[in-house]
Design a binder for these strands. Structure first.
Length: 296
DNA sequence: GGCCAGGGTAGAA
DNA sequence: TTCTACCATGGC
């Protein structure tokens, strides 16, 4: 993929492993808006990019040019996904059924890239995500931004940690967070008091998971999401209800999520996070397909 | 209208 | 260390 960087735009020519729908709708990020086919706004912290397909090109319009480098890093444009996918495919060769399934998943999610998101934004977002559905998660985050984020004119920024720390537990309840209100209230205060994100960053995946678990509302699954999407530790493998469904197809007798995670990370090692995203997206998209069949 | 959603916590065993 | 009850809310 040829990447051309202008002042305020990044242009991708014939992108084989960049598809904005796959990237945004694979569940790693909640702040985006679909404008049409292959045409999205995506928001990160106080920034916004307009990403759209234009013939054989994809344009990433970063606004006024201040944020071009930010979004180059955000979309992780330096990583060679061809190489990642090749290596990943080899890791499941000893299990034909799983290999076949992962191959289909990688084809369905051909354009997925794992974003490099802001750590605090990911922590807050995935605490909200627990035992929740994506539509509702998006609504809660939207109300959070509108109420506590800076007004950027056409949209609201994600609130800063210090702004969040001024909010009451009742506030989180009022925006619809349900019983996660206390988790958000406590964790925001911990972050504001200087919870050591660098220590998490410098730790290996397992130690980092333990550190994050010290935050209220962060259990094994949410911690792995934070590690993958916020710290880009690719040895992480979040096991959620969708991964559970996939897993049961191949290892039906194992019910425990921690054991599933261990088995999968043993197989996929430092590429676990990539495998997880392909599998999650494929599982969800297939379920959507079935719904469409049932409804029509 | 009941089941489910990118589960976690606290307390018990 | 593992098991269980409980948790708010809205999408579908």
């Amino acid at each position: 993929m040829r990447v051309e960087i202008e002042k305020s735009r990044i242009i991708l020519y014939e992108p084989e492993f960049f598809n904005i729908k796959d990237i945004l709708e694979c569940g790693q990020v909640f702040r985006f808006q679909r404008r049409g086919e292959g045409d999205y706004f995506v928001y990160s912290l106080d920034k916004r990019a307009h990403v759209y397909d234009d013939g054989g090109r994809t344009i990433i319009d970063c606004g006024d040019g201040r944020d071009t480098a930010y979004f180059y890093n955000y979309f992780d444009l330096g990583t060679d996904y061809g190489a990642v996918r090749g290596n990943l495919a080899r890791l499941s060769l000893d299990n034909a059924a799983e290999h076949d399934f992962l191959s289909k998943a990688m084809e369905t999610g051909r354009g997925i890239r794992i974003l490099r998101q802001d750590k605090a934004e990911v922590i807050i977002s995935f605490i909200i995500s627990a035992n929740n559905n994506i539509k509702r998660i998006q609504g809660i985050i939207e109300r959070l931004c509108a109420a506590a984020g800076e007004n950027m004119g056409e949209y609201y920024a994600f609130p800063t940690v210090s702004a969040l720390a001024k909010l009451s537990k009742k506030f989180y309840n009022d925006i619809g967070a349900g019983y996660r209100d206390a988790y958000l209230y406590e964790t925001v205060r911990a972050l504001d008091r200087g919870f050591d994100l660098d220590a998490v960053n410098n730790a290996d995946t397992h130690a980092a998971e333990k550190l994050l678990s010290g935050l209220m509302g962060v259990g094994p699954k949410v911690a792995n999401c934070i590690l993958l999407f916020g710290f880009n530790k690719f040895g992480a493998f979040p096991v959620d209800t969708w991964i559970e469904k996939v897993f049961t197809r191949f290892y039906g007798d194992i019910k425990d999520r921690r054991r599933m995670q261990r088995l999968l990370t043993d197989r996929y090692g430092g590429l676990s996070g990539y495998a997880q995203q392909y599998l999650f997206y494929y599982a969800r998209e297939s379920a959507r397909g079935k719904d469409d069949e049932n409804n029509g």
